[in-house]
Amino acid sequence: MEFPKDIKYTREHEWVREDGDTVVVGITDYAQDALGDVVYVELPQEGGSVTKDEPFGVVESVKAVSDLYAPISGTVVEVNDAIVDSPEVINEDPYGDAWMVKVRPGNPDEIEDLLTADEYQKYIEEEK
């Protein structure tokens, strides 16, 4: 299982990558593996706002469903519609093609609160 060092993580198993003045959000390798084959994703509208620790979407496998929690607050500037049509990408490339939304942070400091790869890895070890 991969945990790239250049991104941040949440305890709800989302990842966050800084990209200029926006951040890219997706779900981790661990999350996609725990869910199994993803069959459905529901993402917010472009232009909408998300609130830290509040649900902003849903991801479903055949027999499990999980809310997506916003790692930070801000405005949704772009949504990855490709994964809505081909949710299997989430299993295949969780950190790449399967990014979910790009958010312009309301408070960039919130990124500092997120976990590093090492911290996240340690957290999921304890979860097990």
């Binding site: 459905y40 479903e60 496998s61 055949v62 027999k63 499990a64 469903v65």
Partner: peptide, 9 residues
């Protein structure tokens, strides 16, 4: 589409 249903959701 069982994720709509009570035994999962």
């Amino acid at each position: 589409m069982a994720t709509r249903e009570q035994h999962i959701r």
